[in-house]
Structures are given as C-alpha cells and as structure tokens.
C-alpha cells in the first residue's frame, strides 16, 4: 500500500502502563474502505491498540495519522468529528436515554455533514427500530452491541474500530452481524476489527495482522495466518477460540 492510500497509519506506537508494555512498537495501515482484522491472544494489546487510536489515552511513544493528519493524543470527541468511531467490547450505550436519543445525539454532535444514511435508515439497518423509543437500559446485550454500532454510524464515520463484537452472539446474530459489517465495508467505511472468533472474522475480511505481547508477529491473509508457525504457537493456548 502506498503512503497516499492509507486512511489510518499507526507508526511505532508504544503504550506503557507502569512498567508493563501493552504495545511495544506497533505499526500498520488501513486503506480507505478496507477491512483489517486484528488478532491476538488475550492481553496481546488489541484493545489497547483501539483505545490509542480512538483517543482514550495518548500513546507513550509513536504516532497515529488519519487522512494524513497527525491525530496522536487527540480527544475522542475531536476524532469522532474527523470520522473515527468505535464500538466497545462490553457495550456502553447511554442507558437512561432512549435508543433514538442515543443515535440522534451522536448524529448531532459527531456528525460530519449530511448523513448518507438517515437516523431511520440506521435504526432499520441494525434492526433497532422497534425499540427506538425504549430506554437503552432495557435492551439485551446483543441489541446494545448493535446500538453501539448504530451510534458510531450516526457520526458518518470513515473508519470504525470494532472491539470483539461477536462475543456472546448466537449463530443467527453472528451471521447478521457479519453481513452488517460487510455491508459497511462495501459502502466505503474502513473497519479495524478486533476479534477472537476466526470463523466470524473470515466472513468479514481476509487481511489480518496478529499481535502477541504488544508486538506484531504476522501480517497477511487470514488463510496464511492459520498456517503460520508462530501464530499457531501463540494461539495454542487459546485454540478453543480459533473456531
């Protein structure tokens, strides 16, 4: 990928918590409209990576560029307005607001220009319309995950970071969610998908990078990753998840 094509460039990012290096010099790129999978065993730094990109905390070292602008350490609300958004591993909707209010707020504050998808479209797309006037508190976990995604979409993002969205979904919900993510990619929204469940990930994308202990150990196709000796070795402990 040439320099110009990259929507997101992560360069030599280091994240230290006390003495612990959660990320130890990670670099990768995501092109506009591309879906990239981010794999790795528990504690390998995947979520930390998403947190750094989405501005939850600034990295200890390294830089992050978005559309050729340096966004290292920028606050999440500024990033949202630039077109970066995310979902959370355990969903975090505004529990006391209705589903519609959740989505409307994101559109009002984070929206860039006119939405290609209206709020009603987003509610339909994520099958949330029937709950639109209910407080988010009353939704089940799968519905809350969809609401997280709906809120992200309402900001008209160019890049969405997806953190373990498959966990806890039943097979039907999994299939629908994969369809959903593919549809987003086909609309030109870039995705960075952190995922444990390989069978889910391969329905969304083929290009992955694999992290272990805060370092990148593999970059390439998911098919190749499955035969890579080092990837197999670090995943051996979590083979049950390898689907």
């Amino acid at each position: 990928m040439s320099h110009k094509d990259a929507l997101l460039r992560v360069e030599q990012v280091v994240m230290r918590f006390g003495g612990f290096r959660a990320l130890d010099g990670v670099s990768f790129r995501v092109a506009a409209g591309e879906a990239l999978g981010l794999l790795g065993p528990n504690g390998s730094g995947k979520t930390t990576c998403i947190n750094v990109i989405s501005g939850v905390y600034p990295p200890s070292a390294g830089r992050v560029f978005f559309a050729d602008r340096d966004i290292t350490g920028k606050a999440p609300n500024l990033l949202a307005r630039m077109g970066i958004n995310r979902t959370f591993q355990s969903p975090r909707p505004f529990l006391s607001l209705t589903v519609r209010e959740n989505v409307e707020l994101a559109a009002a504050y984070g929206g860039r220009g006119s939405l290609p998808m209206g709020i009603e479209d987003i509610l339909d797309f994520l099958e949330l319309r029937e709950f639109a006037e209910k407080p988010a508190e009353g939704l089940n976990s799968a519905q809350q995950k969809r609401l997280d995604l709906a809120r992200a979409l309402a900001t008209n993002p160019r890049l969405v970071l997806i953190d373990e969205i498959a966990a806890g979904l039943n097979p039907l919900e999994l299939r629908k969610m994969a369809q959903c993510l593919r549809a987003l990619a086909s609309r030109g929204i870039a995705l960075l998908v952190v995922e444990h469940l390989l069978s889910f990930l391969e329905e969304v994308t083929d290009r992955v990078i694999v992290l272990n202990a805060g370092r990148e150990i593999f970059e390439g196709s998911l098919r190749a990753a499955r035969h890579d000796q080092e990837v197999i070795r670090v995943f051996l402990g979590t083979a049950a998840h390898a689907g």
Partner: peptide, 21 residues
C-alpha cells in the same frame, strides 16, 4: 441537556459520540 445526561451515563461513549465532554 440530553448530551449532559449522556455524559453522566458514560463519559467515554459521550466523547466518542462527538460531545465535547
């Protein structure tokens, strides 16, 4: 006011929704 309640419920989510928390 709605944005304030969103911040109260979850300030990180609120920031991610573009609200200047």
């Amino acid at each position: 006011g709605l944005a304030l309640q969103a911040i109260r419920d979850d300030s990180l989510s609120a920031a991610m929704a573009g609200i200047p928390v």
